[in-house]
């Protein structure tokens, strides 16, 4: 059963075959019950919890020799976390890696959803720090499981109520709770709420792995995902008064970057692949005067 290793001493994709089968069973169950957190026997990985061990175990279980892997961290392909995970899989599987969203068949991500639309033959794997959406209000795991089972979700709105009462608007800006397929409430991992609409009815399979808490959940392709809100305070995403300084995009999620000690700021796409493509296609779309506004 065991496949030959690409690097001496490692099984293909690091995990042993029995572990991968166990995780695949958890993934199948997660896909069958959208938004439901499936417990799995999380393994120790050669890196600390919090570095994406959940996502890595999911990726290791679904990746095959013909796959092309892309790894992003906060939208960027060139940050420490992304580079480390990409080279980990390059070393233990020998699969091709890419920074281009449209070329990848498996994308592992931390804190962002790629700007380019995904296709039905792609899988997006999220790294999840805390999978339980009810944790903030109910510390007992036995109780939260019961609340999920019975669909007792009124308490979730208490959190949104508090935001409006204290801050005048729903201030939750990331990890914004959603209801999947009109049933389970789910944390979409700490993606900005800007990305929440992309979860809805997406053609790609979305898998979520929480390594420390040992939970896997999923949003199957073309599944309804609704962000929680109030009738008189509907869900809204962030907007910016600026365009990306580098590519001029006004439709992407922007990072605010302080460039000197005087507080000068620039705004740039957090999705580096999206930004690079736009610059390639139409160089110099923004002149310096607009960029500095």
């Amino acid at each position: 059963m065991s496949e030959p290793s690409d690097t001496a001493g490692y099984n293909f994709a690091y995990l042993d075959e029995q572990t991968k089968r166990m995780i695949r069973r958890a993934i199948l169950k997660a896909v069958a019950i959208p938004g439901y957190q499936v417990p799995f026997g999380g393994r120790e990985m050669p890196m600390p919890h919090g570095w994406g061990t959940g996502g890595i175990q999911v990726t290791a279980s679904i990746i095959g020799r013909d796959d092309t892997l892309k790894v992003i961290d906060q939208g960027a392909d060139d940050t420490t976390n992304a580079v480390s995970i990409r080279s980990f899989f390059a070393k233990t599987t020998g699969v091709a890696t890419t920074a281009r969203t449209e070329e990848a068949s498996v994308i592992q991500t931390r804190h962002r959803f790629p700007e380019k639309p995904l296709r039905a033959d792609q899988i997006l794997v999220f790294q999840v720090p805390i999978p339980e959406p009810l944790r903030w209000l109910e510390p007992r795991e036995s109780e939260t499981r019961k609340m999920h089972a019975l669909g007792e979700y009124g308490i979730m709105h208490v959190r949104l109520y508090e935001d409006i009462a204290l801050l005048g608007r729903i201030a939750t800006a990331y990890d914004y709770p959603v209801r999947v397929n009109d049933r389970y409430i789910m944390r979409p991992s700490p993606i900005p709420k800007f990305d929440n609409p992309k979860l809805d009815n997406n053609p790609a399979l979305l898998l979520f792995g929480a390594g420390r808490e040992k939970r896997i959940y999923a949003v199957p392709p073309f599944t309804k995902v609704k962000s929680l809100d109030f009738d008189d305070h509907p869900f809204e995403v962030q907007t910016w008064d600026h365009a990306c300084t580098l590519c001029g995009a006004r439709d992407s999620f922007l990072d605010e970057i302080v460039t000197d000690d005087l507080g000068t700021r620039m705004y740039a796409c957090s999705d580096t692949d999206y930004c690079a493509d736009r610059r390639e296609a139409a160089p110099q779309t923004v002149d310096a005067s607009e960029a500095a506004e």
């Binding site: 009124g154 109520y161 508090e162 008189d232 305070h233």
Partner: peptide, 27 residues
């Protein structure tokens, strides 16, 4: 009581639990 959330949210919790979704009315 839920000591970590405001008085208003404490009163509103049961309303939200039975499906009230209008902030102004809960308030």
């Amino acid at each position: 009581l839920r000591l970590g959330v405001t008085a208003g949210a404490n009163i509103g919790e049961r309303l939200m639990a039975v499906g009230e979704r209008h902030y102004g009315q809960i308030r």
